[in-house]
């Protein structure tokens, strides 16, 4: 029975307690969608899960860096002045310093694969991309600018919904932006939406669902009501992919799911197909 003698030796192998301290933070990440552990560098330039293709949440500036050849920001000075809800001013300050943005959306004139577009990118790192008055103002101005100059609008949505601290004014932004979308539509111009993770609530119930063409990033969560609210209303567990864009595609609310690395080419192609032919 000497065969198993050396088993004893395992007890002499000591666990290295300090191993976790020696692995730098953020070196390994779990994919929020499929849960697979990934080595940071495996995500690559586009920050995409190597296993399932989920696009990790990007900051607006990172997105613009990846997507555009040139970007000229507009309305950067627009920020919420005099927030009057308890604790709101502090929250805003924190969001501003964390993201370097003045609001939850970044807008400007961009070139994507040589196509000129009015581009808006929402940032989920800024108060969860919530729709504040100034968020609505910037997006409205983007549409007005595009309407005046006959430009297509490309909008990347990412939002937890309305901004509670601003109350009814936040709700009114849904109508305000929609009015600008209506005018842009009537001018015969293209509005392309790219749904990114997560797009919910008031943004889904307004400009995210008003595009002529709607793209989405793989496995992005898109819906109106929160999953927990639905579960507690209908007393039922929801399936795993309930509000994922793959389900939305199946139900007919998305035109195509486009991997992040191909977005710029696909956007440019659609924009090009909408060029007004010179007679």
């Amino acid at each position: 029975m000497d065969l198993y003698d050396n088993q004893k030796s395992t007890s002499r192998i000591k666990r290295d307690a300090s191993v976790n301290d020696r692995i730098p933070d953020g070196l390994f990440l779990a994919c929020p969608y499929c849960g697979v552990q990934l080595y940071n560098k495996q995500l690559g330039r586009y920050r995409v899960c190597a296993h399932c293709g989920y696009g990790f949440r990007l900051q607006a500036r990172e997105r613009i860096e990846l997507l555009t050849q040139s970007f000229e920001e507009m309305d950067s000075e627009i920020e919420m002045t005099a927030p009057d809800f308890p604790g709101y001013a502090e929250k805003l300050e924190r969001a501003k310093s964390q993201t370097g943005l003045g609001e939850s959306v970044l807008t400007g004139l961009a070139t994507i694969e040589d196509e000129k577009v009015a581009l808006g990118v929402m940032d989920s790192y800024f108060m969860m991309g919530s729709l504040g008055t100034m968020t609505g103002e910037k997006i409205t101005r983007l549409f007005e600018y595009a309407t005046n100059r006959s430009l297509p609008v490309v909008l990347f949505t990412a939002s937890g919904g309305a901004r509670m601290q601003e109350g009814i004014n936040s709700l009114m932004q849904m109508a305000k932006v929609s009015a600008a979308v209506a005018a842009h539509q009537e001018a015969g111009l293209l509005y392309l939406v790219v749904l990114t993770d997560p797009t919910t609530g008031g943004v889904t119930a307004s400009f995210a669902m008003q595009g002529d063409v709607t793209f989405a990033e793989p496995h992005a969560l898109v819906g109106f009501a929160g999953a927990r609210v639905i579960e507690s209303t209908i007393h039922e567990k929801l399936p795993k992919d309930f509000q994922r864009v793959e389900t939305l595609l199946e139900n007919g609310f998305v035109d195509q799911i486009v991997p992040r690395a191909e977005l710029n080419k696909m956007i440019a192609r659609v924009v090009k197909l909408h060029h007004v032919r010179e007679v």
């Binding site: 929609s178 307004s206 898109v222």
Partner: peptide, 26 residues
Amino acid sequence: GAFPGKTAEAQGQGEAIAQSILKSMK
């Protein structure tokens, strides 16, 4: 508020509201 249900989501509650607002504007 709009009903937060399983079928409601599958049938596009967000889209339904978004289009109601957009159509009202026209």
